[in-house]
Write a protein that binds this DNA or RNA. Structure first.
Length: 571
RNA sequence: GCGACUGUAGUCUAGCGGUUAGGACCGGGGCUUCCCAAGCCUCUAACCCGGGUUCAAAUCCCGGCAGUCGCACCA
């Protein structure tokens, strides 16, 4: 077991608080559980994570990014299912005060307790004398508890709104715009990051379960009949550590997982691998990362198949990304509730001539016979096909009666149609990232501690400060020279930090603790030296604590190379 | 939401009815040719909040808030 596993999460949270990564919100007023603010370093680290995620999807895969509202009107969540699925009816025992899920207590008394409202549940308790299962006490009022924060939009409280529990709905409701933007083509990949809100009953474990949290969501709309991915062949032999439904962990290649039926399709498998790649580049330890498949009864209401990226933290295995195949659920639901078109028109390579057998009603005959009912009966007749005709008679159900329609009232015809495509509701592949959890994982996996010395081995790309700049002494012009260098680095867009207090060792330690990968020191040789060291500085590597001496004019170039991943030892 | 435990400078902690509330680290200023938390001088800074008991409360009691753990809940 390695050192990081034995660490106390409190130690890291303490560091985070001291050094300005995260702070408990509203601390001067006593704080609120499940709410944290990002401090100066945390904000930069968080932004760096977002940038890498954005780059991976936008530049890497050609996805587009949007930014939608956090307050949504009620119909959005009626359609999405969150009003129903995020609500529980809770009842408290008058005696022992224990809370119970009301629908669980009447499971034997009603075929489908989920369909009951608070009144219905309450009367079921009264009629059947249901008591507290723990102490046989009387049960109190049935209360509805929804995990979404409710508000009203505008005055008069007529329009109910909710703070979004996920950013995904903002993408789904914009599907018609996005689809047009993408010039009516699939696949269509859309990303969005932002805050989501869930009124958790009991937030625990620091930043792991928050009431207001940051997520980075990706919705990829694909043709349901084409769940492949262009770049799949390039990664089919990469390894994945999987825990499928059967609970047996195995490490196999992407393609073995797909062809073995473990992962449903290529595109889902591709983005599982893609997530692994992104997470490891962000600094998640590959040895403490696995993908676990959801069990059927664990799956969210919208998912067809779902894999969680789980990381091993001091809290245990924790989900940080969920990669779900949401099928056509979301778009179908929004189409139904909004009555808007939410489908893709899939053009055939060339229009098809289709011959269709149909029945045509003879209106001239039907009119006099059925008078006012003729129109409806004609419609029913035309719904049928020639195969339904028996002995020249078509039986039609009308107003509870069966009418025998004889063949003088209709004719069988062959219709030639030109069909240039078909409507399909796209399926959605959703990699949804818990940003705060990824943030915490990166810190915990980077945390190294020997005796009293602490180092955060953050990946250079995410590190909030890239380089510390010090004068060896605060005198003799060393500080002036170091400040110049600091300025030069900042002007080149490199996040630098100037420090001239205490001893040189203390400054290295300070930078190590916040994960700064390199420190540059201006010493006496920089100012004057007869061995050719004039105008050179030392650069020191955080993880090896090795030093190199390089010309001061090369600093920007060297640091930029190092950030891109050049090995320090090769300098 | 329930139960147990806990709450003292930025951090870790001592004090457990009467203390100028002590220390360490961190942080600030200064000195020292100072490259891995070096040394010396110096400074800042705390009893979670609200009631109560008492001559006297950081200390005892009650309530609140927050944290940890367990139960319950949970994409």
């Amino acid at each position: 077991m390695n050192g990081a596993l034995q660490m106390n999460a409190g130690e890291l949270l303490s560091l985070c608080k001291r050094r300005g990564f995260i702070w408990p919100s509203f601390e001067i007023y006593g704080g609120v559980a499940g709410m944290y603010d990002y401090g100066p370093l945390g904000t930069v680290l968080k932004d760096n994570i977002i940038s890498m995620w954005r780059d991976a999807y936008k530049r890497g895969e050609g996805f587009v990014e949007i930014d939608s509202e956090t307050v949504n009107p009620e119909p959005v969540f009626k359609a999405s299912g969150h009003i129903d699925e995020f609500s529980d009816f809770v009842v408290y025992c008058q005696g022992c005060k224990e809370p119970f899920r009301a629908d669980h207590l009447v499971g034997d008394l009603h075929p489908n307790p989920d369909t009951l409202d608070a009144e219905g549940l309450k009367s079921l308790f009264v009629e059947n004398g249901v008591l507290c299962p723990d102490c046989d006490g009387e049960l109190g009022e049935v209360e509805e508890f929804n995990l979404m924060f409710k508000t009203t939009i505008g005055p008069g409280s007529s329009r109910v709104g909710y703070l979004r529990p996920e950013t995904a709905q903002g993408i789904f409701v914009n599907f018609p715009h996005l689809y047009r933007y993408n010039r009516e083509k699939l696949p269509l990949g859309v990303i969005q990051h932002g805050r989501g809100y869930r009124n958790e009953i009991s937030p625990r474990q620091g930043i792991i379960r928050l009431r207001e949290f940051n997520m980075m969501e990706v919705e990829l709309f694909v043709d349901p009949e084409d769940k492949g991915w262009v770049r799949y062949p390039a990664i089919r032999d990469e390894m994945l550590r999987l825990v499928p439904e059967d609970g047996r962990e195995r490490s196999i290649t992407v393609d073995e997982a797909v062809s073995g039926g473990i992962i449903a399709n290529e595109v889902l498998a591709y983005f599982i691998w893609f997530t692994k790649d992104l997470l490891t580049r962000l600094g998640v330890d590959g040895e403490r990362l696995r993908f676990r498949q959801h069990l059927r009864d664990e799956m969210a209401h919208y998912a067809m198949d779902c894999w969680d990226a789980e990381v091993l933290l001091s809290y245990g295995w924790t989900e940080i990304v969920g990669i779900a195949d949401r099928g056509c659920w979301d778009l179908t639901q929004h189409a139904k509730w909004s009555k808007q078109e939410m489908s893709h028109f899939k053009r055939f390579d060339e229009p098809k001539e289709v011959e269709r057998e149909a029945i045509k009603a003879k209106y001239r005959e039907l009119g006099p016979l059925f008078k006012g009912d003729a129109k409806e009966i004609a419609r029913l007749i035309e719904e049928r096909t020639p195969a339904d005709i028996e002995n020249s008679v078509l039986k039609v159900d009308f107003n509870g009666r069966t009418l025998d329609i004889t063949d003088n009232l209709f004719e069988a015809v062959t219709i030639n149609e030109k069909v240039s495509g078909e409507k399909v509701v796209p399926h959605v592949i959703e990699p949804s990232h818990g940003l705060d959890r990824i943030f915490y994982t990166i810190l915990e996996h980077a945390y190294r501690r020997d005796d009293e010395y602490t180092v955060l081995s953050l990946r250079p790309e995410v590190a909030p400060i890239k380089v510390g700049v010090f004068p060896l002494m605060t005198r003799d012009g060393l500080d002036t020279k170091a400040r110049e260098l600091f300025r030069t680095l900042n002007d080149a867009g490199i996040d630098a930090y100037y420090d001239d207090s205490g001893s040189i060792g203390k400054r290295y330690a300070r930078m190590d603790e916040v994960g700064t990968p390199w420190c540059v020191t201006v010493d006496y040789e920089t100012l004057e030296d007869d061995r050719g060291l004039k105008d050179t500085v030392t650069i020191r590597d955080r993880d090896s604590s090795e030093q190199r001496r390089i010309p001061i004019d090369d600093i920007i170039d060297v640091v930029q190379k190092l950030i891109k991943g050049v090995d320090f030892a090769s300098l």
